[in-house]
Design a protein around this nucleic acid. Structure first.
Length: 354
DNA sequence: CAGCCGTGGAG
DNA sequence: TCTCCAAGGCT
């Protein structure tokens, strides 16, 4: 009965598979494991539309896992800038180096893949199935939605995950496991969508328990999420001789390992000029609103001119676009360049100190 | 287990 | 404007 559902889904996939740069067409030999792995990591909590350009740049610049493993940390972090969840980039590089050190071949089993940095249960199963043809139970957000509806699972997420895993296992065929996994994800992305699912053209329509209830879009149920608090912070745009002061953020934590403008604490109330890199006449340049996963930030941007050297990295203002700033600070930089007029270069007579 | 961790687009 | 969320992983 459930094998029958897999056959119906695969038949649909043979006709309707999306064409994607990291994917081999239905029935064709598996794609390069490096490309499958890279795409899967990029696609974690990230849309296909967003990933396309990054995937193209990464594979152009680093065509193999060995090439990526040999890249400098800073180059990879900058190339990842804007994609978000920067721990992925750090783990990506660590994983590439582990694979390269072990001979350059990815493990071809779920357990072997699972042991690598940045590869969790989903990605291990997906790569094992898609790149190596292993039968693996691949459950991502799409599959959770499709299976919740197919079986009319009333338990809310995330408590329903064990139930969903069992149900998915019962559907997964012995062969074409990679195509099956991608078919489930394509179905979730194009037909069994979160809102307004296109049940009328769904290949599993006749087998879907939620369709029989008359309101498939109601599922999956989800437990309520916490409200997102508002925080306030200040970023410092400090110029000197056409350069701006940048810092490298700590490896762990928010925007970890990324270049950034110096900034003070991000807290419930306005921190003002706390943690300013120098004491100078800061002028207000405006505000940037930015939303992170678990809080919203109102970032005040202030500008100043340095007359002395300050610890950090002085980056040419004209080339700030190449600094690899995460989006929050890229927004702040754009605002600063549009509104800040630095003091003229100090021209004190030689031998006279200010 | 629940909190932490980005971003941009759709509705 | 605001809410939801997209091929999750780590601690």
């Amino acid at each position: 009965m459930f094998v029958d559902a897999a056959e119906a889904l695969l038949a649909w996939y043979d006709r309707s598979a999306r064409t994607l740069p990291w994917r081999s067409p239905p029935g064709m030999p598996a794609a390069d494991p490096y490309r499958v792995w890279l795409s899967e990591v990029m696609l974690q909590q990230t849309t296909v539309a967003t990933v396309r350009a990054y995937f193209a740049r990464f594979t152009e610049r680093w065509p193999t896992v060995q090439a990526l493993a040999a890249a400098a940390d800073e180059e990879v972090m900058s190339a990842w800038a804007g994609l978000g969840y920067y721990a992925r980039a750090r783990n990506l590089l660590a994983c590439a180096r582990a694979v390269a050190a072990a001979g350059g071949r990815f493990p071809d089993t779920e357990a072997g893949l699972r042991a690598l940095p940045g590869i969790g249960a989903y990605t291990a199963a997906a790569v094992a199935a898609i790149a190596f043809g292993r039968r693996a139970v691949v459950v991502d957000g799409n599959v959770e939605r499709v299976v919740s509806r197919l079986f009319a699972i009333e338990t809310p997420l995330p408590a329903s995950r064990p139930e969903i895993a069992v149900a998915t296992e019962s559907l997964t065929p012995a062969t074409r496991a990679g195509d099956f996994a991608q078919a489930m994800m394509d179905l979730g992305a194009t037909i069994c969508t979160p809102r307004n699912p296109a049940c009328a053209i769904c290949p599993l329509r006749e087998r879907c328990a939620a369709v029989r209830t008359g309101d498939p879009a109601r599922l999956p149920l989800k437990t309520a999420k916490r409200a997102r608090p508002q925080r306030h912070g200040t970023a410092f745009w400090l110029e000197r001789d056409g350069h701006v002061l940048l810092h490298r953020r700590p490896e762990r934590g928010l925007l970890g390992g990324m270049r950034a403008l110096p900034s003070g604490p991000w807290q419930a109330d306005d921190p003002g000029l706390t943690d300013a890199p120098v004491a100078t006449d800061w002028v207000s340049l405006g505000h940037v609103a930015h939303v992170f996963t678990h809080f919203a930030l109102d970032l005040a941007v202030v500008g100043g001119t340095a007359t002395v050297d300050v610890a950090g990295e002085w980056w040419p203002v004209a080339h700030i676009g190449e600094a690899g700033l995460p989006t929050l600070f890229a927004k702040a930089a754009t605002l600063a360049r549009a509104t800040f007029a630095p003091d003229p270069a100090p021209s004190y007579p030689a031998g006279v100190s200010a």
